[in-house]
Amino acid sequence: MRDDDVPAWWRGLGLDGLVDIHVHFLPDQVMNAVWAYFDRASEHYGTEWPITYRTSVEERLKTLQALGVQAFPALVYPHKPDMAAWLNTWARDFAASTPGCVPSGTFYPEPTASAYVREALDLGTRVFKVHLQVGGYDPRDPVLDDVWGQLAEAGTPVVAHCGSGPIPGRHTGPGPIGEVLRQHPQLTVVVAHLGMPEYAEHLDLTSYPNVHLDTTMALTPFTEALMPFPRDLIPRLGDLQDRIVLGSDFPNIPYSYATQLQALADLDLGDAWLRAVCSVNGSRLLGL
């Protein structure tokens, strides 16, 4: 499948378009820093990581429109204190001026987190992102307890990069986020990247009623060469039809957008599964 084929593919499933819960738009200076990091991917990850959609904001939005991505968040995330609040403001402003973009937010373990998360919720933020590898913090930090409580009560999803791929962090893996869920069992966590490489352990977290997993980069040839998804877990993905949701990591992917969709289609889990993953579940999570 090529990108030009994508609209015909989702129309063939009977969909009006795609809902992608894991898309990144960032302030220019932050995105440029992210791209500079990927330029040195061979040092960090042992493999090259060319950014396929390294274009202007306007061109990236046109690409999503051409693909038929009808709803997406502009996921932001901090790597240090005193960064999350202004990222939240930027993300709300970006969403307000961008058709199809759902207001998103983030947080960091700092004394002001509870207040700015409350403000973000009050102003209509519908999804949050946390990146435990990049942020380098423990999600069990007591300063975040009220934040997790607010999000659990609101039913607002949190896309959490909590797996140890592509490289482990001090607080990645299913243990730390699992302890957060034990404290806040109603929390709506969307485990990014299917929890790679701890796939089975993160799938086990769906014993909590609102835990989902996104497909971001998982199952693609690029990722299969580094952190292959065990074939014996594929039936579990099928059983979790209402808990798996499309994510892509657009624009920061080293292959075409269509590659992610082809990887999902190649699982042969059926059209109903693809409809749920590529649109229905994302629509529900984002409150569309």
Rank of each mutant, 00 (worst) to 15 (best):
D4P: 00
A8T: 02
G12N: 06
G14Q: 05
G17Q: 13
L18A: 03
D20A: 05
D20P: 01
F25S: 07
L26C: 08
D28E: 15
D28G: 13
V30M: 10
M31L: 11
A36D: 15
D39I: 01
R40Q: 15
S42D: 15
Y45I: 06
R54S: 06
S56F: 08
V57Q: 14
R60Y: 09
Q70C: 10
A74N: 14
V76N: 02
Y77F: 15
D82S: 07
L87Y: 08
T89W: 02
S97M: 10
T98F: 03
P99W: 03
G105A: 04
T106V: 04
A113W: 02
D122R: 13
G124K: 10
T125I: 12
V127R: 05
K129Y: 13
Q133M: 11
G136I: 09
Y137K: 01
D138S: 11
R140V: 10
L144K: 13
G149D: 10
A154S: 15
P157M: 12
V158T: 13
V159M: 12
G173N: 12
G178Y: 02
L181T: 05
P197T: 08
T206E: 03
Y208K: 07
H212A: 05
D214H: 08
A218R: 06
P221S: 08
T223M: 14
E224H: 07
A225L: 09
F229D: 01
F229S: 01
P230D: 03
D242S: 14
D242L: 00
S248F: 06
S248H: 10
P254W: 14
T259R: 05
A265K: 10
D266T: 01
D268P: 04
D271S: 13
L274Q: 02
S283L: 07
L286I: 07
